[in-house]
Amino acid sequence: MLTLKQTPTPHIRSEDSVPKMMWTEVFALLPFVLASFLFFGFNAFRILVVSTGTALLAEMGMRKLLGKKSTLYDGSTVVTAFLLALILPPSLPSWMVALGSLFAIVFGKEIFGGLGQNPFNPTLVGYAFLSIGFNSLMKHPLESTEGVQTWVFGVTLFLGAIILIFKRLIHGDVSLIYLGTIYLFSLALGQEPNELTFGSTVLLAAFFMVTDPVTTPVTRLGERWFAFGAGLLTLLLREPTGILVMNALTPWLDDRLRPQRSR
């Protein structure tokens, strides 16, 4: 005798899933992770391990505390921890990395109810916390770039972007608008555009933060305006924490820039 499932339509589903998407993002970060090991050696490894370890523990602890099921399998915590590790200066002491990572997960994500509910990019919440609290120790990552290293970082990040675009996880035009805004407005203001635009932090932001599904608008038009605004703010602050302001504007953008048949 057959036992048949009787769920509503449609009866076929796409093969994509949230964990698949998140782990693909982690995978797309790997070339850049390896490049950072190459140039920063043990420090880069130390920061990545501390950031990821703390984030996983923080997530597990928060979920336990709030009596919710564990969601470690979905990979989103690892994405946040990796991104944070990759934008922190390599000389940062481990306790600060741990603090930033803890803050990112607890106050950037879990306090709002976990993945999908957080209004702000958790990575940038952790980063902003460290920047404000320990300004002197947070040596600006943009300043530590030089010839070959910039090239290798750039190439590995573009490689990651190609993976994401190929897997249809990000819209290339959104990243392009973000980078283009920074580049063109730098030029217009008479600044040297390359250093900021193609610095590893801004490229990371362009491919992994401005394109984050959770904290950006749901319509393509909204995403593009988001990228434009984020570009301007990045230029103004000379670091991607300006994206947090655009995160705050996302509900407004979603309200204004609706699909055609919505009023």
Binding site: G116, P213, T216, R220, S262
Partner: peptide, 23 residues
């Protein structure tokens, strides 16, 4: 693929795939 239901991550794919332009 009756997988478990995850929370919405606001990716906007539903908006893009909608043939009648609703959200």
């Amino acid at each position: 693929r009756l997988d478990s239901i995850e929370p919405c991550i606001r990716c906007g794919r539903c908006v893009e795939s909608c043939p009648v332009s609703i959200s």
